[in-house]
Design a protein around this nucleic acid. Structure first.
Lengths: 262, 262
DNA sequence: AAAGCGTTATTACCTATGTTAATTCAGCTG
DNA sequence: CAGCTGAATTAACATAGGTAATAACGCTTT
């Protein structure tokens, strides 16, 4: 087991209902105890996956959903010439194969970066879950919408931003995502990323990735290595990248609509 | 798995059941008459939107869903320096704001390209629709999954492909998407795209966009203008871009799971 | 503590794509 | 059918970012 990322509130013990997915949902929505119980159910069956392992291949049957409870993974595509493009990362609280219930096959590959702690559930389980707890269906929909925004943001990043801004923008995003599930420490956070992987995420060569990180460092924007990086000037980073992490939050009322359900 | 038979008189075929959205769903799933009726309901209220108009602004309340029945639109983000990045296109059969039920605000802007014919429905309508016709809920989920794949594909395109391949790849994708809803003609199809818009989609300058299209033409890959373009060598285009349009189809059985619903 | 290996760093050189700016083309509209 | 106007095209030049090669770091393992 690699070093464990430390959960934020050191004082409160990881209760049984403290799974990162639940934390994420609670960040946007107050949950009833029954709902929390139902979500805890989803975490029934757990499993460990070693690092640097391909979990899912493009085209594989989508027969289970995995909730990451510890560790990082990424979704990617590999081209013939060996190039790899990372589509998105999965951090604790994220679900791998969220569309498994609807789509028979995986469209892209997924691999672990670190050793992974995951909860496994059958896609079918969702049908019954949503039938019993309609609000969880809506939250699931919210999660899908948020994922959509994350990928859309990735498009904008690599489509119309310079290497410098791409990098700054992604680092900010990761910071906020980890913050939401409690995996941060003031303005720093740890990642298992390498410059190589980052380069394949941002569509850059590894050499230029390195140049860019060095530049961010020289400009006093960041410090430390990727495994424990500190954002030195968040305001400036947000200004540079024109980002409000709005797409991560969307915190408003998701509930009202629900009342019609009965 | 025995699925419930709907005792619907055979002669009862919904009047106007040829909406592109329905065509798209039928492409992957056989639908019962009742389901088709329910989908036709969604098209009750229609509306026209003029071309080149911003329909939705980043941050606007997501208070309605629009099904495009005719015309094209696109989702985009505009950066401070004036750069625009197109995230995806909407063609007939696509839904604008598919996450409206789950997310209070639009994360990105949407604008019409052509005059638009749309059907408007309230997001809440979906709750009741899915409750009555669970399979439509699954189809909706399938649609979201497909959209996810489309955006993921866009990431790969602009992240790790040359201008030439990006362009070829996008043209192929559009061809297949239009084919599914019946808007094609042998190997040619018409689009309202300009080189300017394409450039902002593929993350290229307009000059290079032009160079690239000219090159594709010189290579005998395409002919005609964007408003009526012909793919001259689809096999070769697919080889070059390493694409199987798998992510557009995923045609297998979506129904089995449904039987547990009651 | 030396060996081994994945990762980071750095240098020198190269090219795909961007920028600016001007010209031509095509479809309207009056 | 002349005159607009948005779109496509082209040329000349500039640069962000890619490639190749090598070195240095920092771990884990023996």
């Amino acid at each position: 087991m690699p070093k464990q990322i430390k959960p934020v509130p050191a004082e409160h013990q990881p209760a049984q209902s403290d799974w990162p997915l639940i934390r994420k949902f609670r960040y946007v929505q107050r949950l009833e105890n029954q709902e929390i119980d139902a979500l805890v159910q989803l975490h029934q069956q757990t499993k460990t996956i070693p690092k640097r392992k391909v979990i899912l291949n493009q085209g594989d049957a989508n027969k289970q959903c995995l909730i990451i409870t510890d560790g990082w993974a990424y979704r990617f595509s590999k081209l013939r010439n060996g190039n790899r493009q990372v589509i998105n990362y999965y951090v604790p609280g994220d679900i791998i194969s969220p569309f498994a219930l609807f789509m028979p096959k995986a469209n892209y590959s997924v691999a672990s970066i670190t050793d992974l702690q995951v909860a496994v559930f059958k896609p079918d389980h969702l049908i019954q879950l949503f039938a019993t707890h309609p609000r969880l269906g809506l939250l699931y929909g919210w999660m899908l919408g948020r994922n959509d925004a994350l990928v859309a943001e990735q498009v904008i990043r690599i489509g119309r931003r310079s290497a410098y801004k791409r990098t700054a923008h992604l680092l900010l995003e990761l910071y906020y995502r980890l913050k939401i599930v409690g995996l941060y420490n003031d303005t720093s956070f740890s990642t298992p990323l390498t410059q190589d992987l980052l380069a394949d995420t941002l569509g850059l060569s590894i050499v230029h990735m390195n140049r860019t990180l060095r530049k961010l460092q020289a400009d006093g924007m960041i410090s430390g290595r990727l495994n424990e990086i500190t954002l030195l000037d968040i305001d400036e980073l947000m200004r540079i990248t024109e980002s409000q992490p709005r797409y991560l939050e969307q915190t408003q009322q998701i509930s009202p609509v629900v009342s019609q359900q009965k």
